[in-house]
């Protein structure tokens, strides 16, 4: 029944359908990338200067870059890295933030104050600025960029988990569990956490898009992945130097960043509707 209802809710909304399609496309590119790219040799940056900066053609749909690599090939391969970091960053941030948030929401008192004030401290600095500062301190590179973004994002999960846990703590079923003699750990694990998941899943879906964008931004600023690693942001960074004459160089990675951010955001919106218990009836 719930599965059927979910299908109904997805179908009813064009946005969710589009989001689902875009996300499916990104995932397909990431999974199948190495098998479908037209020029496998270009993946790691073969140098072929005779072919450099060619316009789109039948042989190179999106043209070639400054060392003669097929842009389409490099963009497709880039999906894998983007999706990986896009999932890893929110996941790691949630693994830090959710336990802290639930702890803050259920424990109350001084512990809650300490956790929430630390969270506020992180949230009061603009995310990307903090990330840039952190990468500058740690040194550029995709690994350090990810660490920086995880450090920037965990407080958002604390906030949501805390407010959800605060509300659930007051539910009679929590009291019923206490009356049965359940320990605090059991109440958190069996009752509070499962009932807090819906908004966290929605946030994670939206954050995957944001993480792809953020890592591309750091790449663009030269703080993330380094060429010849096929990373969308780094590619645009180089392509910037060839604008406007060689415009196709920037368009292709840009379009994929756009598609993935849009896709995960729309999917998150759709999930919000599906996971909301009030949408039990259509």
């Amino acid at each position: 029944m719930r599965a059927r209802l979910a299908v109904h809710l997805v179908r009813r909304s064009f946005g969710t359908m589009l989001g689902l399609a875009l996300v499916a496309m990104i995932i397909a590119l990431a999974l199948l990338g190495p098998f479908i790219v037209p020029y496998p040799d270009d993946v790691l940056g073969a140098v072929n200067l005779t072919n450099k900066l060619q316009p789109p053609s039948a042989a190179h749909w999106f043209g070639t870059d400054e060392v003669g690599n097929d842009i389409l090939t490099r963009v497709i391969i880039g999906a894998r890295l983007s999706l990986l970091v896009g999932i890893a960053i929110p996941l790691a941030a949630a693994l830090i933030g959710v336990p802290l948030g639930i702890l803050a929401g259920t424990a109350g008192g001084g512990l809650r104050e300490a956790i929430m004030r630390l969270t506020d401290l992180f949230l009061s600095v603009p995310g990307l600025v903090l990330a840039i500062a952190l990468v500058a301190a740690l040194g550029p590179g995709i690994g350090n960029a990810m660490i920086a973004l995880i450090l920037v994002w965990w407080p958002g999960y604390v906030r949501i988990a805390e407010s959800k846990a605060l509300a659930i703590r007051e539910e009679p079923f929590i009291e019923a569990a206490r009356a049965a003699g359940a320990s605090q750990v059991r109440i958190l694990w069996r009752h509070v956490l499962p009932n807090s998941l819906s908004p966290l899943i929605v946030k994670m879906s939206m954050d995957i898009g944001q993480a792809i964008l953020a890592i591309a931004s750091l790449g663009f600023l030269g703080l993330g992945a380094k060429p010849p690693t096929p990373e969308w942001g780094a590619m645009i960074s180089i392509a910037r130097g060839y604008l406007p004459d060689w415009w196709w160089y920037a368009i292709c990675p840009g379009a994929l960043i756009y598609a993935s951010v849009l896709g995960f955001n729309l999917l998150g919106d759709g999930l919000r509707d599906i996971l909301d218990p009030r949408s039990n009836r259509g």
Binding site: E171, P172, F173, E175, A176, A177, R190, H191, P194, N195, P277
Partner: peptide, 11 residues
């Protein structure tokens, strides 16, 4: 409890 809907964990 008074309200059995709230006294049971929905999950």
């Amino acid at each position: 409890h008074q309200n059995p809907s709230a006294a049971l964990d929905p999950r």
